[in-house]
Amino acid sequence: MKPFTYERAESPAAAARAAARPGARFIAGGTNLLDLMKLRIETPRHLIDVNRLGLDRIEPTEDGGLRIGALVRNTDLAADRRVRRDYAVLSRALLAGASGQLRNKATTAGNLLQRTRCPYFYTTTMPCNKREPGSGCSAIDGFSRGLAILGTGAACIATHPSDMAVAMRVLDARVDTVAADGTRRSIPVADLHRLPGDTPHIETVLAPGELILSVTLPPPAGGTHLYRKVRDRASYAFALVSVAAVFGTDGTARFAFGGLAPKPWRAEAADAVAAQGPQAVAETVLAGATTTRHTAFKTDLTRRTLAAVYADAGRG
């Protein structure tokens, strides 16, 4: 761990201003950042503790949606009565992630911004374009079981590890931020994460110092909410494939996917063929998939997981 300075921010605006310092990083739950600092994968020179900013409430919005403070802990969000009633897919996704101890610490914004668990990203002796731009990708011809098959490129096949973000994607959530100059904006969660392209080390559209204040969910859409996570053990493992699904009462459905892409993945074209059943959805989503010898099974697994989701929804 490189030496760093530390401050506790007293207001969102002050935090965003402080973050303009070179090498500054926000810290909230620290469940990912501290590990990365110990490995010198993240080497912030200045840490801004945002835990006391009061962004820890879940409030209704004027249009009947829900605003989730950036610092709401995953445990609290999953247990919230309104979330469980109106956005069950989100509650289910949260509870499928990490462990109870981690969920007690991890925050809403931090979860969105967590970094990939690609094993080569974590092995600092090996090339990784995300960790060390231009050094190469060790994963494409290496151990890639957990990695992505959609939205990847020649520079990187890392997955975004979040379950929560997949549910937020299917719910069309928006991310509310404040920039260092005080400007506020609202970003669809669909646009928050970037695909790797030639710059896999740039993972979001957030500007340096831009602080997430909250995540806003639109008014409840009703329907049947499911989150199916397929993994190598029963708990405490990242998704090989996960599907967040909301089945409407009118025969429509929408899906988002985890474990398949560098960001929470959604294909609106796939939603359009939902009435045709899981195979049609799968073929649409998987069009353009690029697999390695370790990820080849993910196409079949995606098809089968979708079939399981349809069956669970009573549409099988």
């Binding site: 668990r117 053990r233 029963a234």
Partner: peptide
């Protein structure tokens, strides 16, 4: 490659 307990899986309680 999988040299930590996040990546080298041993059974957890749920298993």
């Amino acid at each position: 490659v999988n040299h930590d307990l996040a990546e080298y899986h041993v059974p957890v309680h749920a298993d």
